[in-house]
């Protein structure tokens, strides 16, 4: 079964993403920050990673860089809630520079996240 690792510090977002993806037929692992996410990935490599950007301990951008270092070509989706009065897309653009293949701004609908995940899997196959 296709395995997705969700790295998100907000418990509710993490939980709801897990429910949405599991309902769509994916196996989902979750981690609450970048460091734990990387540790989990090293032990149980996933087929795709969805990660938040602003997280304590190790932010999403650093996490993405390290994930790409561990597994070049790993499909990574960066998600973010945007910023205060700054370019909301900026962090997501930097996420792409770091190695994320897709970015998605919060709040996203279930349709948007499932389409993004599905498209990405189709692309890499």
């Amino acid at each position: 079964m296709t395995r997705i690792l969700v790295i998100e510090d907000e418990r509710q977002v993490r939980d709801v993403l897990k429910q949405i993806l599991e309902k769509a037929g994916y196996a989902v692992d979750t981690s609450e920050d970048g460091r734990k996410g990387l540790e989990h990935f090293r032990k149980n490599p996933a087929d795709m990673v969805i990660t938040d950007i602003l997280m304590p301990d190790k932010d999403g951008l650093e996490t993405i860089e390290e994930l790409v270092g561990l597994n070049p070509g790993l499909p990574i989706i960066a998600i973010s809630g945007g910023g205060p009065g700054e370019k909301a897309q900026f962090a997501l653009d930097v996420a792409k520079m770091c190695g994320a293949v897709r970015v998605l701004a919060k709040p996203f609908s279930r349709k948007e996240i499932l389409e993004t995940v599905g498209d990405l899997f189709r692309e890499i196959q």
């Binding site: 907000e10 977002v13 950007i53 602003l54 205060p84 900026f90 996420a95 709040p107």
Partner: peptide, 20 residues
């Protein structure tokens, strides 16, 4: 700089809440 733009604002938190 990128992460700094996200930090300290309410938009980030608000969007997380809305996502949930």
């Amino acid at each position: 700089e990128a992460v700094g733009t996200l930090a300290g604002g309410i938009a980030h938190d608000f969007n997380n809440i809305l996502t949930a």
